[in-house]
Amino acid sequence: MGLAKRIIPCLDCKNGRVVKGVKFLDIRDAGDPVEISKRYCDAGADEITFLDITASHEGRETTIHTVEAIASQVFIPLTVGGGIRTLEDIRAMLNAGADKVGINTAAVINPDFVREAAERFGSQCIVVAVDAKQVSGEGEPLKWEIFTHGGRNATGIDALEWVKRMVEYGAGEILLTSMDRDGTKTGFDLALNREVSRSVPVPIIASGGVGNLQHLVDGVLQGEADAVLAASIFHFQEYTIREAKEFMLKSGIEVRL
């Protein structure tokens, strides 16, 4: 017995409501983030990830209030991402009750931001979120590049190189989303996840593409993920967190029940 693999439900939020897009675009309403967080926590979620998907463009106040409300009712770790650009943004989220922040676009614009953030707040609260997309063609060696701004902008940066650099700079964890799989319900990009997991010492959260419970198992056993993140299969109540954990346990994965 030892460290459990984590299940992390993800709340993509827009203007204070949980939404879920397919490939970051078509958006469905899924409810109140505080209610949903509490339900997941009671059902045995190991952490909650809150992504403010419009934060790059809109005001932060709603997000801060929502984070405060979640943090006063949910006593498991809470990661907040979306529009984190300055040390002040990080401090505001930690003060609101977040335990970790997810940094994505700001890291690409200024990689030293990750270094400064880790030095100031500790690596334990710095999650670098990486949106990766396969760029190699059929028959070529696998290659992925990172994208920013919710998947809209290509950067030309190799995903594996990027993740190694971010860990060197102090990232304590990597939230790895496959842009090819996100919202498709066809499972994680296992090759991507495995390559990333093997190239850095820190935990990897697999994200993007979960459509059933076997996908979660595959993410851990084949993708070598330390944690698995999913949104729509939980929001639309196709499965409960408890069912997901029991399924993983039956597949030989250590979980917290």
Partner: peptide, 21 residues
């Protein structure tokens, strides 16, 4: 340490992050 391993010689991630007994 950077080469932390479990009993089965599997690499363990650092930081130790998550739920342990």
């Amino acid at each position: 340490g950077d080469d932390l391993k479990d009993e089965n010689d599997q690499r363990l991630k650092v930081p130790h992050m998550g739920w342990n007994q």
